[in-house]
Nucleic acid binder design. Structure first.
Lengths: 220, 220
DNA sequence: ATTAATGATGTCACTTAATGACACTAGGAG
DNA sequence: CTCCTAGTGTCATTAAGTGACATCATTAAT
């Protein structure tokens, strides 16, 4: 089923990621990924259109996780507060945590691996649509609203840049970050590029009252 | 030399673009591009690492053109005024105009052609670095300044989105735009996502005087 | 329980994108 | 003129990716 095949794809993605991290993208070939994942090479090509995009499901998790936080964001809470709550869920399962490490390592390879880079960008490009839908919903605007699209693009760009920066710093410079730091930087980045006042409590579903002056809803 | 080979690459890019537009990416093969460009297939693979990236030089022109405008932007002029001046240079050479048409057609294919999409995004990703350098220079900030990078990312995202939107509207819906409209939309988009006050006159090289309150430098 | 139907997977042949190795040519420096 | 270098073409080879078809598993119908 869709659920079952989704899991199968993830298995392949993890296998590919391990090999990519260990030997680089160019040096790992399709057959190896298949063997590592325990399926035939033909099936790998059925799951993914090419070698690089084998890791796409992992990259997607990066932004999908963020998008999910946006979707479940109560309308009467500010961005910082909500992000803090979400990341406070450090009760992430060991699996999720293991994936997170793999993802960070992959992202750190992006600058040197052109093929990974294209998948990385493609993934976030997909995220733009998803986020636009969420923002439109939150602000009661149309999904075709250009300002909404722009906001989604800029926000995704900010999140992607944070991911790139932090992953690189973590792997290459062995720097480590507290969740508070990450949350703070992310919130600040999103606020600074968002052209729509969606970072703070928004109406009209909030007791039917809109914040006094939506445009001023920026950080102090 | 570098100049000569740059021209050769452009020749291949145009050849590839013609074929991609005519028959789609999948249906055109390496040998055809080579023949169309009048060189051997081996040389095509020396110029470009894969089929899709043959058109990269054209995509790069899209943002490089914009970046060049930013670079040559006098510090005492507002964004709208400068963009208007640049586009007023409709004295673009016939070659440039022909390229522009090809580029628009290519961009319009992006949603349907995953391979083109990845090249399109890669290209703009390169542009982020270039633009960051320009913005840093303009605002007398460091190129490593995170705010600068963020500004470049958001701005490039805005320009890319405008390009995507306009190209699609032009080709798919036969819509046409006046340069004034394009300039207005682009300026508005850039302003709305830019977290740094670089859209209006900036110091300190402007007679050694900074604008009164840089943060308020937004559109009326 | 058996069978028919459907969808996913494996096997193998095949196409073509991409690389390596080497020979050839053009053009500049001595 | 000769040497040297950078770029190009030719040909053989590797590996990514597809097509065709057989096989297997799951479910629904009888």
């Amino acid at each position: 089923m869709s659920d079952r095949s989704e899991a199968a794809r993830l298995t392949v993605a993890r296998a590919a990621a391990r090999l990519f991290i260990a030997h680089g993208v160019a040096a790992t070939q399709g057959g190896e990924i298949a063997k590592e994942a325990g399926i035939s090479e033909r099936t790998v090509w059925r799951y993914f259109r090419n070698k690089e995009s084998c890791v796409a499901p992992l990259f997607s998790r990066s932004w999908a996780n963020f998008a999910e936080q946006m979707r479940s964001w109560p309308r009467d809470i500010s961005l910082e507060a909500h992000l803090a709550t979400c990341f406070d869920l450090e009760k992430r399962s060991p699996d999720e945590l293991a994936d997170a490490i793999i993802i960070v390592r992959l992202i750190a390879m992006v600058p040197d691996e052109p093929d990974l880079r294209s998948i990385w960008l493609l993934s976030y490009h997909d995220g733009e649509d998803a986020l636009a839908a969420i923002i439109a919903d939150r602000l009661d605007r149309s999904r075709n609203d250009f300002a909404v699209r722009l906001c989604a693009v800029a926000t995704m760009g900010a999140v992607r840049t944070i991911d790139e920066t932090i992953s690189l710093a973590a792997i290459r410079h062995r720097q480590s970050f507290t969740t508070a730091e990450v949350v703070a930087r992310m919130a600040e980045a999103i606020r600074s590029v968002s052209n729509l006042p969606f970072c703070d409590p928004v109406g009209p579903k909030l007791f039917g009252i809109r914040p006094a002056s939506p445009v001023e809803g920026r950080a102090p």
